[in-house]
Amino acid sequence: QTLTAYLVPFAAMNLWHGALSDAMGRRRVVIGSLVVLLIASVGAALATSIEALMGFRVIQGAASGVGLVVGRAMVRDVYEGAQAQRVMAQVSALFAIAPAVAPVIGGWLHELFGWRSVFGFLAILSTLLLVWSHLGLPETLPAAQRHPLHLGRLLRSYLETMTDGAFLAAAGAATFNFLGVFLYISSAPRFLLEHLQLRETQFLWLFGPMTAGMMLGAAASGHLAGRLSPMRTLGAGYLLMLGAAAANGLFHALHGAAVPWSVLPIAVYSFGMALSMPTLTLLSLDLHPTRKGLASSCQAFLLTTGNAVTAGVLAPLLNTTPLRLAIGQLSLALVGLGFLGIFLHLSRRPTSRHPATV
């Protein structure tokens, strides 16, 4: 219940963080959200009733998405071309790794110190980020480039962005690629405890290789920026994702679940996903260069919605067997590839205003 109380405002506010930063500046929105997150984390740690805990979780959710949304917009404010891909690779790695690492850290904190320690840890982390941002975070959006919070114009901008076929295709490709990883994150308890017969303290069997794959994939994306064209980078990413998911399905069609063979394809898939994510993120942001914050908000909203559907619907349907999970991962990657094909088709129209490369 507290997770739902967190995720609903998290998804809803993802639509607004970017627009607020387009109007007020990036730095002010980041620092303000960190202050709110710190207060909510302390409140949750000290909560004496479930109602109070739920309320503070709602506030946490509303403030937490700012880093993902505004961080991506800030990268595009400052960097162009290959350098933008290098920096976006680092940002994408952090936000892709977080859902994999967080359950491990939270599980150990809960095991050693109880549930309040999780929120205490978040309060300490929020404090450190707040101090760091106050001292070192520059403003990347000049006042002359900001857009006033005029409701009518804002709604028109949302409508323009969320009905832009090329934007939806690029963002959809990135979303479905990541859902191939998130399917296993949301199915981790059943996959590890029931299918692999591991203990609760052995979740690193999944999250360790998955995190390593995402870190290495992001590093490879940054290294290849300027050396390999964006389309070739995407081609390599999809080759790895589809190959790994197919191998995952073939193994579980012939064998029962076993470590390390059941987790190695997930690591390779994660590498391919992280390799392609920065390029897809930049392609979609570049379609709306004057409202990068709002476009980043729409990206994050689509991703968060996909995560919610995967956790609530797909994971319970597919995690009954390892083979179903593998087929689900392959299907999600194929949908992502289909969205990339739509983006390329739309961007190559003679009358299109959309660029085909970063």
Rank of each mutant, 00 (worst) to 15 (best):
G237C: 07
S262R: 10
N248M: 14
A225W: 01
L216P: 15
L216W: 13
S276F: 09
W261M: 12
H255R: 12
S229T: 09
A274I: 01
G256R: 11
G249D: 04
G243C: 08
R227I: 06
L234A: 00
A212Q: 07
V259F: 15
G249A: 09
L254M: 12
F271H: 09
G249K: 00
D286E: 15
A220E: 01
V268K: 04
G256F: 11
P260G: 12
G217W: 05
A267L: 03
P278M: 10
L264V: 15
L283M: 12
S284N: 12
L240F: 15
A244N: 10
T279Q: 08
S270L: 08
L287H: 05
A257C: 01
A247D: 01
V259R: 09
L239H: 05
L228W: 02
H223S: 11
W261N: 05
M273F: 11
L240S: 11
F271K: 06
V259Q: 12
G217P: 04
T279H: 02
A253D: 06
A246V: 11
H223M: 13
Y238L: 08
W261C: 03
A257Q: 01
M214D: 05
L282A: 15
H252T: 00
W261Q: 13
A236G: 09
L224G: 00
G222A: 03
H252K: 00
F251L: 14
G222Y: 01
M215A: 15
